[in-house]
Nucleic acid binder design. Structure first.
Lengths: 193, 193
DNA sequence: CACAGATGCGGACTAACGGTCCGCTTCGAT
DNA sequence: ATCGAAGCGGACCGTTAGTCCGCATCTGTG
């Protein structure tokens, strides 16, 4: 990629963040973004393909640290930790991420409304949560005749649904991140019996 | 309301259904709906206020029978039934409704993307589910020291999230309504411990 | 039945958006 | 310094939700 292209790409991402921070998730048209970035609209589309692509890439950027933490051993998030604690720690981090990026979450949701299940970041999260639920479920039903009636994939979707921007905003409006974290935790713990 | 107004209202609702059935949830512009109903666009907007209003009213119509069942004693859905069974029966019915109205659910979701928590139908469902979860929770923690850590309002949102059109379609694509029902049931039962 | 005014109608119009296109500019390898 | 490839910008297009207002249609009243 040419150096000016890289610069512009960065400018667009930063301008998008700026607009999300100042105007919330709405009325962020791509014309505005391009103008704020000091760039033509064509440039924006060449870099990101579509509105969807723009928000997906921005979310991926913001979620990069978490993606890394998930894979590096040593933290309660990483491999090696017991699945239950690992899941709870992951959900806590996700809550933090949601809080810090509420507007982005909302914009991303809207932009990905179609095929939301094809967003790479969501897919990673979903695969992770599914695996942890399944693992914890196996462990539990091995030591006792626990119910095998839980659809891990499905439960993962439901759990991740907790971070729907509107829901998260609603919950945090009355209790902040702490409330979000504890509500999600309550839900997750219920899934373990 | 004048008689021609009533007729047109009906024509618009039926045309919307027709288009949803034949074209899925997408590319249903209000121009198309008006044309299919043999009515001017102004008429459509006078009756329903906005795209959102149109789909809200259509959903309300489709959900009317369920709303009635919830309130009439005698069925497992109605008052008097034990909360746990009442909730499971309600979720089963919702699954049926979702299956029969997938396209409408999808269109409704899209149209109500903003303030989805202000849709009257959703609010009724949410209040109902919240009450049942809370009731069941009280019963359980009264007879044993069950965890009080479950946020009923939040859990209700999560549970209702199961009927997100995309999720429901995804699940039903691989197992039909039966799979949707059993996955939701698994989730709900997990919430009861 | 005739009338009048309230109610409703239709569809041209607007503004805003996502996305495309193409002639021109800039970059950077040689 | 040169030249082809890569990138740029913004005018342009098609589509959409929503508005507006002159005209038609209903319906309660005498």
């Amino acid at each position: 990629m040419r150096s000016d292209a890289t610069r512009n790409r960065e400018a667009i991402l930063r301008a998008t963040e700026e607009l999300l921070a100042t105007h919330g998730a709405e009325h962020i048209s791509l014309d505005r973004v391009a103008a704020a970035a000091g760039v033509g609209k064509g440039t924006l589309f060449r870099r990101f393909g579509s509105r969807t692509g723009l928000f997906q890439e921005l979310l991926a950027e913001r979620a990069a640290a978490l993606a890394l933490a998930i894979e590096s051993p040593g933290s309660p998030l990483g491999p090696g930790a017991p699945p239950r604690e690992r899941l709870l720690a992951f959900l806590d981090e996700l809550a933090e991420l949601a809080q810090r990026n509420l507007a982005l979450f909302a914009a991303h949701e809207r932009a990905c409304a179609d095929d939301k299940y094809r967003d790479p970041t969501y897919l990673r999260w979903h695969a992770h949560v599914t695996a942890l639920i399944a693992e914890a479920g196996r462990a539990r039903s091995a030591m006792s005749g626990g119910e095998g009636g839980l659809d891990a994939e499905f439960a993962a979707h439901a759990l991740l649904g907790s971070f729907d921007a509107d829901l998260a905003r609603h919950v945090m409006a009355d209790g902040g991140v702490a409330r979000l974290k504890s509500s999600v935790r309550g839900l997750a713990e219920a899934l373990f019996g």
